[in-house]
Write a protein that binds this DNA or RNA. Structure first.
Length: 562
RNA sequence: UGGGGCGUAGCCAAGCGGUAAGGCACCGGAUUCUGGAUCCGGGAUACGUUGGUUCGAAUCCACCCGCCCCAGCCA
């Protein structure tokens, strides 16, 4: 079928559209997402997942999930499980097309036999060091292995015995016979099979020889009848080998490899190796630490699949090296949550406020809508009483101009409640720190009533007697530098204060919230109930702050020496 | 001194010979019981450089410059 592509365009869609228009691949579009199960998926993988599954969906094709499990020494079921969970959570479905390269080991072995018989592959006894030396350099040609011209029969015999386990690890390899003088090092008789006694997470000890990526990948694609094999740019040099393998084995309708630039995100690192270091060396609590750019980390942080997919759509697909600002990701989650998240009141850093003219024993239940832009979310009642808490940063004894929050003699609106006026403060005698702010309220200014005056500030608050304790975790970038990879050791750029844990007070309606629930804490940002949260101990993660114009003004003031 | 790829605003990114989309960020203004959201407005007269082809080039050609990748029995 020739379904027309929707959404924004990119060069890969151009290729697919063109292929379809000329009836290539019997008019099929078939992609695959081929992770190696050796680590957790991250936002960079999300880009690839969205691309591959998205392309298939747009063109009425199919996308497989295939584990590229050809190196048992690095792989583990822990990862195959987490990868499936992450892809599913992102919203994609591979239906019954869950495959493993290891499913094809027998076929791959037989294909290798064909190559040998065709004189296109040979068993080489050179050591790894020797192979490296024979390979030549970037600027100089390599030279033929002394084993390059063994007879087909000898090669067949040796390869069979490699599989049978007659030779020690590393003693021999099967190599493609291509061209040791090729300017493309990948074509200098690349290794196809190596001997490696490692227990495979799926095939156990059935095999002691394992195929290399360059050999297994094109054939796995071919076996699955993939049409467009999309990978990142570092494999561009491998494409001639990908094509060589398919050509020498006479694969009909060979899949086409297409490369795109991998994602780089500011203020974080993306390589599995580095992420693993952060986990193993205790810089973070695990692969799902909310500061990690992993899918599981973002999920725990509170990101939605919708926001991540939107992000992947917005950043586009091209071949130029890109370095996307984390602000783009943050924009996506804000935009998603703005409409759908209920807005509630939580005081992160409490400061006591006493309404002197409010009766001591009185409690009013005030109606508070959950989201003024989305009335469907309904409302709840919040208790108001004489003693409240407001945010510490919302009071300043000696305010600068343009500060329109609470300060002595000034009025502010309490969200969903009354206008109050600050009359005096109580300070700690030793530290001079303000411990209580005494105010009066104007009964005629209850939320919803018309008022005769304008107050510039509106504050969120909680009733002291009704508030519920909660732990709130504030996260900031793991790395201070835009590009931590610029330095020899990326870890020197780590932000020591990327996690701040606060003892906060939340409005009572939040008491029974379930892990995963997301809210906007009025004026403070979007938050998500952590999986470790319980009825006894509420724990919230800040997903992202709200945009903060006041912070910007302050910063500008600082810089001008104000 | 080899091979492959890429260079459009601070960051992504359209554009495919006819005279520079869009998003993020940023800056104004309006509005607002979140200094949020929303709305309106603002930016590229060297599209890496220099030449060339053309009535006309970001788009075609040539040279140059810059950045990325490749010498795993990793993927």
């Amino acid at each position: 079928m020739t379904t027309r592509a929707t959404g924004s365009n990119n060069f890969i869609k151009d290729i697919v559209s063109e292929d379809l228009s000329i009836g290539k691949n019997s008019n099929r579009v078939h992609t695959r997402f081929p992770p190696e199960p050796n680590g957790y998926l991250h936002i960079g993988h999300a880009k690839s997942i969205c691309l591959n599954f998205g392309l298939a969906a747009e063109y009425g094709g199919l996308c497989n999930l295939r584990f590229d499990d050809t190196n048992p020494s690095k792989e583990d079921v822990e990862y195959v499980d987490s990868i499936q969970a992450d892809v599913r959570w992102l919203g994609f479905d591979w239906d019954n097309r869950l495959f493993y390269a290891s499913d094809y080991f027998e076929q791959l072995y037989n294909y290798a036999g064909q190559l040998i018989k065709a004189g296109k592959a040979y068993v080489c006894d050179l050591s790894p060091e020797q192979i490296r030396n024979y390979r030549g350099t970037l600027t100089g040609p390599g030279k033929d292995s002394p084993y390059r011209n063994r007879s087909v029969d000898e090669n067949i015999d040796l390869f069979r015995r490699m599989r049978a386990g007659e030779f020690p690890d590393g003693s021999r390899v099967l190599r493609a016979k291509i061209d040791m003088t090729s300017p493309n090092l990948n074509m200098r008789d690349p290794v196809l099979y190596r001997i490696m006694r490692a227990t495979h997470h799926r095939t156990g000890d059935d095999w002691c020889i394992y195929p290399m990526y360059d050999y297994a990948h094109p054939l796995s694609d071919a076996i699955e009848e993939v049409t467009h094999s999309i990978c990142t740019c570092e494999f561009e040099d491998h494409r001639p080998l990908y094509d060589w393998t398919l050509r020498e084995l006479n694969i009909k309708e060979p899949p086409q490899q297409i490369e795109f630039a991998r994602l780089n995100l500011s203020h974080t690192v993306m390589s599995k190796r580095k992420l693993r270091q952060l986990v193993e060396q205790g810089y973070v609590s695990g692969w799902d630490d909310p500061r990690m750019p992993t899918i599981s980390g973002l999920r725990r942080r509170g990101y939605t699949p919708e926001a991540i997919r939107d992000f992947c759509e917005r950043i586009g697909v091209a071949k130029a090296n890109s370095f996307v600002d984390i602000a783009m990701l943050e924009h996506c989650i804000r935009e998603d949550l703005n409409f759908r998240a209920p807005r509630v009141m939580v005081v992160l850093r409490p400061l006591k406020v006493i309404i002197d003219n409010y009766p001591e024993d009185r409690v009013e239940m005030l109606d508070a809508g959950y989201n003024s832009e989305n009335p469907q979310l309904g409302s709840r009642q919040v208790p108001f009483s004489r003693e409240l808490y407001i945010e510490q940063e919302d009071f300043l004894e000696d305010p600068p101009k343009k500060f329109f929050r609470l300060s002595p003699g000034r009025e502010v609106r309490l969200k969903n409640a009354y206008i109050i006026k600050c009359e005096r403060v109580v300070k700690d005698e030793k530290t001079g720190e303000v411990t209580e702010v005494h105010c009066t309220y104007d009964p005629a200014t209850k939320s919803g009533m018309p008022t005769d005056r304008k107050v510039k500030g509106t504050l969120h608050w909680v009733s002291a007697a009704h508030a519920v304790n909660a732990e709130v975790r504030l996260y900031s970038q793991l790395f201070l530098k835009e590009n931590p990879d610029e330095d020899e050791d990326f870890k020197i750029n780590m932000n020591r204060d990327s996690l701040e844990v606060l003892a906060s007070l939340v409005e009572p309606s939040l008491a029974g919230m379930a892990p995963g629930d997301r809210y906007q804490f009025l004026r403070m940002g979007y938050f998500c109930v952590d999986p470790a949260s319980s009825k006894d101990k509420l724990v919230f993660n800040r997903i992202v702050s709200l945009k903060d114009t006041w912070a910007k003004i302050q910063k500008a003031g600082d810089q001008t020496g104000k």
